[in-house]
Design a protein around this nucleic acid. Structure first.
Lengths: 147, 147
DNA sequence: GTGCCTCCTCTAGTAACTAGAGGATCAAGC
DNA sequence: GCTTGATCCTCTAGTTACTAGAGGAGGCAC
């Protein structure tokens, strides 16, 4: 018997209300039963499910991976190979990102260290951006946009 | 006298053609002059400007910051304080991100290390995701989405 | 009864592109 | 002169994972 309102669920898991509706809409959360006044109602299982999602998101798993993970957790009899694979993939994505960011960090440190206080004409920061790229093959995919 | 086609510019800087049009549209690149057949034409200055943008993007500067940076580089007589500030901000954003990702990495490593090969019911990966969050206050802003 | 809070739906906006439709033009080879 | 394929044009919509806001109904406390 579900008795938890969407606001309470949001508070319990520390997720925003619209996010919960969004998760329902994309099918990460099941369609919630409603009161006669059309308010969504949740139970303890919903709290656990949402907490699972939140935790996975914090670890950077994309929604599609979380879908698979939830599916597995809903069917305990299935082999969990794919969960392991997803975790390994996510780990290596994170590791790659760290390497890339460290390269960026050192270039930015050089830029900041040679900090100038004059006019833009002889600013080292701008010079460094304009100059030939000394950067290794960091983020050859075209930038910073995603994990 | 501009003579470089958009395709050549794209190749010269290693940026995709639609990206160049996009940069023009949002005002990062000036509106290019056209041939009588409506093709955009560029010159060496365009190559330098686009390279500047690309390099700044690789370093993770957001478009708005790049706008400021380009503006400064267009007006060498202005003080370059803001360039320094932007670089410092970007550096600290990158440093923060590295710290966050390292925390994620260690949790993912623990998950992967305890890798199971049975069924989802007793999968450590899923258990780790479902269990109480042991995670420190990493990425309290809600995840991985941006730099 | 009167605020104020929570809830509802729906649309649009965010960042920084990327992909695709549908069509015109160009350069090279035969 | 013609065909073929590459390149160009514009415009719209899709990507990710939400977030913000409009506009309105219902519920609770005093």
């Amino acid at each position: 018997m579900p008795t938890i309102t969407i606001g309470k669920l949001a508070k319990a898991v520390d997720v925003k209300v619209p996010t919960i509706r969004f998760y329902e809409q994309i099918g990460l959360l099941p369609v919630a039963p409603r009161t006669e006044n059309d308010r969504r109602l949740y139970d303890e299982a919903s709290v656990r499910r949402l907490a699972f999602i939140k935790h996975a998101r914090q670890l950077g798993f994309p929604i599609d991976a979380i879908r698979t993970l939830l599916d597995l957790s809903d069917h305990p009899e299935r082999p969990c190979e794919s969960a392991n694979t997803l975790a390994r993939e996510q780990l290596s994505a994170v590791e790659t990102k760290i390497v890339q960011l460290k390269a960026l960090r050192s270039e930015l440190r050089r830029m900041v260290a040679s900090g100038c206080d004059g006019s833009a004409g002889d600013c080292r920061v701008i010079e460094a951006l304009a100059g030939p790229e000394l950067l290794g093959d960091v983020s050859a995919r075209g930038g910073e946009s995603n994990l």
